[in-house]
Design a protein around this nucleic acid. Structure first.
Lengths: 180, 180
DNA sequence: CGATTTATGTAGTGTTCGCTACATAATTGC
DNA sequence: GCAATTATGTAGCGAACACTACATAAATCG
């Protein structure tokens, strides 16, 4: 998972994987079927709901709090020095050679699912009254997710926890202007 | 340039390049020295100051206007259906195999240079009084660039011009809360 | 024109890629 | 304990990778 996270799908070779896992290609293929299969299991491990800051944040009592927790939780994860910087789902399949487009679509689908979750949480906020009726869930969700994805690039460019949290400060200020 | 832009540095093979350019590997190497050399010339063409929305935007009369022009100009470019979606400097070298780290550092340096340009323009705005003295150029520039980079991912995920511009609306609202 | 230089195509180089046939070792089930 | 099944290591598959030696064609220049 960490190799794919750091180097991306194509940037991680079977040699890197087998030596890191301490097994031979035969065992890897017996257990995972293909490089694709291993990658998907790695992504599933990465984005397991019980550990995903995004999924956990959606349970917050208000939509604003859910978005803020999502951004702050992911910002901290992106800047964690014990793991590769940024988000695996955003970074590991951004640019792919011909023949691997399905990997990009798979990751784009996960990003889309996150966007949908955020938008649904925002809609709920409008329904429950903690957001004004005029708030546009589409725009608010796109804004939040755009900042989220930008944080991954910032983290990969070396931004630390404080810097990312300062960006979230700005994003939440923008949220308060948009959500009224 | 378009191939590297679409598929990234490693995702673009010499076969793709030579067939697209209509030349043989020998001619390519005689003209550009290496795949790296061609990639760098492609990036330089992509980010030529006279065509770069970011460089052109920095000439705006106020810092706020400069940032807004940068975001809106790049958003339009990212969503241009005639070119690959998103920013080549952000997307073409995010995830690299071992041995190609220098390509990633090269692109990160360009991103850093853009961040520095934005921060310098913001500092000038504080000096010239169109931004309040308490505005923090570091935070404002990081916020603007984070949104900018997030727009690239949104564009690659299929967001169109209107959607990206709506995100910029939100970002500028956030700017107005931060810059006071 | 003839000689030199420059540019281009042909046909490969060695390396690494994802992946697998085959044989051996470990484990399981009766 | 012995056969059947499962798991693992060895060695190497064809294909694609970035790149280049060599020969030929084009252009330049006296």
């Amino acid at each position: 998972m960490r190799l794919f996270w750091q180097h991306g799908y194509e940037g991680t070779s079977l040699t890197m994987l087998t030596s890191a896992m301490g097994i031979t290609p035969t065992s890897l293929y017996a257990a995972f079927g293909s490089k694709d299969g291993l990658f998907r299991e790695a992504v599933e491990l990465y984005s397991a709901p019980e550990a995903s800051p995004t999924d956990r944040a959606m349970g917050a009592p208000t939509a604003r709090e859910a978005v803020e927790r999502m951004l702050r939780g992911n910002a901290d994860a992106y800047a964690d020095p014990d793991t590769p910087p940024g988000c695996m789902v955003v970074l590991s399949g951004i640019n792919l050679a011909e023949g691997h487009e399905h990997v990009g679509r798979y990751l784009a689908g996960l990003r889309r699912a996150d966007l949908d979750k955020v938008r649904a949480r925002i809609r709920r906020g409008v329904e429950e009254g903690d957001l004004p009726a005029g708030a546009d869930p589409d725009v608010l969700a796109s804004f939040a997710v755009t900042v989220l994805h930008g944080l991954s690039v910032q983290a990969r460019d070396g931004a630390g926890r404080e810097r990312l949290q300062a960006v979230v400060d700005g994003a939440m200020a923008g949220w308060d202007r948009l959500a009224r």
